[in-house]
Computed example of a mutant assay.
Amino acid sequence: MTTRVFFVAAAMGASLRQARFDDGRSIGNGGAAQARSAAGTLPSAARVLVPPSVRCRETAAALGLDAAVATQLAGLDVGRWRGRTLDEVGTAEPEAVSRWLADPESAPHGGESVRDLCGRVAGWLTAVAGTDGRTLAVVEPEIVRAAVVHALDMPVTAFWRLDVAPLTATELSGRAGRWNVRLGHPLARPDAG
């Protein structure tokens, strides 16, 4: 049996524009409008999931999705950096940021390391493998990165080299522990231009 997992990256909001670590802010009117314009473009799914973050829940709602909360798909826990911008943290703690970006085992913020995040997402993908029907999940970009790293058996050091744009879809399909990846296509209606 082929397993299909369809990840949708959450809509743009002020926090993402500012390169701010998740602070619980809304996607705002602009992000919601973009998501609403993509409503109806997603494939049907047996399961629709969303992590507890405001951005993901609001994106799912704007896409017209009735999603169940899946805490395993929560974004990277950045501990005491939550709510701060990357520039703010980089100015205050340049060595810590450099270490964090270079070493997937590092967690100078007191939260979760990139390696731990990748392991958590890999565990979730292993659990969902073999389920009937498509799983659709509206998630933070780092969850998509971690899923692709696992699916393609990439080194965890590749994590930061994967760009995930807002309101794009990445599809994983596979069986017997082997995944194929269709990367980052935008959500848009065929007649949208």
Rank of each mutant, 00 (worst) to 15 (best):
R36S: 14
A60L: 07
R36Y: 01
A39R: 12
A39C: 03
F21Y: 14
F7C: 02
A46N: 11
Q34A: 14
S44W: 01
G64V: 10
L16V: 07
L63F: 05
A14S: 10
G30N: 12
G64R: 12
V48I: 15
A32R: 12
S37G: 11
S37I: 05
R25C: 06
G24H: 02
A62I: 06
P52D: 12
L16C: 04
A11G: 04
A35V: 08
A32I: 10
V50H: 03
V54P: 11
D22I: 05
A39V: 07
A14F: 02
S26E: 04
S26C: 10
G40R: 04
L65C: 02
R20E: 05
G30W: 08
A68K: 11
R55M: 07
L49C: 05
R17L: 15
Q34W: 08
A9M: 04
R36D: 10
R20K: 05
D23F: 01
A45M: 08
A32N: 09
V5T: 02
P52M: 14
L16Y: 05
G13D: 11
G13H: 04
A32C: 06
P52T: 14
R25M: 06
D66A: 15
A67Q: 05
L42K: 03
A32K: 05
A62E: 10
S44I: 09
G24A: 09
R57G: 00
S44M: 09
A19G: 03
P52W: 14
T2M: 14
R17M: 09
E58A: 08
A45L: 06
A45I: 06
F7N: 00
R4A: 10
G40M: 09
D22N: 13
A9R: 11
R25E: 13
D66K: 11
A61H: 09
A38G: 07
A68H: 00
A61L: 10
A68W: 00
I27S: 03
F6N: 02
E58N: 07
A38H: 10
